[in-house]
Amino acid sequence: MNFKNLLTDDRAVSPVIGVILMVAITVILAAVIGTFVLGLGDQVSESAPQASFSFDFEANGSSFNGQAGDIVNVTHEGGETLEASNINVEGDNSTNTLSGTGFSGTISSGDSAGFNKVDTGETIRVIWTNPAGGSTNTIARATAPQ
């Protein structure tokens, strides 16, 4: 047996590597095509928007829209422009429903909306609803002072 020929003979390496690469490429293509065929690609693009909101709480004695009581002014500080139809402002107190002007149209930086019937210690949330359906995300929250 000639050891010099055994160490320099590499004819079998190239076909094995070629087969492994072809299988890897086939698996990757199948995964990408399967993702879009099953509709999973649409869900990836519909993630919650990135936006910043500030909350200004005003205690008893203040009035908003002619109604006295605790109010909160929610202001869009920056980030993505949002559609008001996809935004809801809610409190965690189930006995009162927030009321007020709300947002309308397109919400961009600097837009503000006022809501009354806020209880002390209540957590106020800005909730985004996916227009494609199926999911909601809290994109901002604050708690009213005690």
Rank of each mutant, 00 (worst) to 15 (best):
V72C: 04
E46S: 10
R11P: 00
G69D: 09
V37S: 13
N73S: 06
S47C: 01
A84R: 09
G78T: 10
E77A: 15
G39D: 11
V19M: 06
A51L: 03
F64T: 02
V72I: 10
V27G: 06
I25V: 15
D9L: 01
E80W: 04
V32S: 05
I33V: 15
V74C: 00
A30G: 12
I17K: 03
A48L: 05
V72N: 09
V16T: 14
A51E: 07
S52F: 05
D10A: 12
G66Q: 06
E77Q: 15
V37W: 05
D70M: 08
G39K: 03
M22N: 03
R11S: 15
F57V: 01
G61H: 10
N60F: 14
I87P: 07
G61E: 07
G69M: 06
G69S: 09
T35V: 03
S63V: 06
G61N: 10
V44P: 00
H76G: 02
F55W: 08
V27F: 14
L38P: 00
G66K: 08
S54V: 05
V74G: 00
I33D: 02
T75Q: 10
A30C: 02
S47M: 09
T26Y: 12
F36E: 09
N88Y: 06
L40W: 15
L38R: 02
L82Y: 04
V37M: 10
D9K: 05
L40K: 08
F64I: 07
P49N: 11
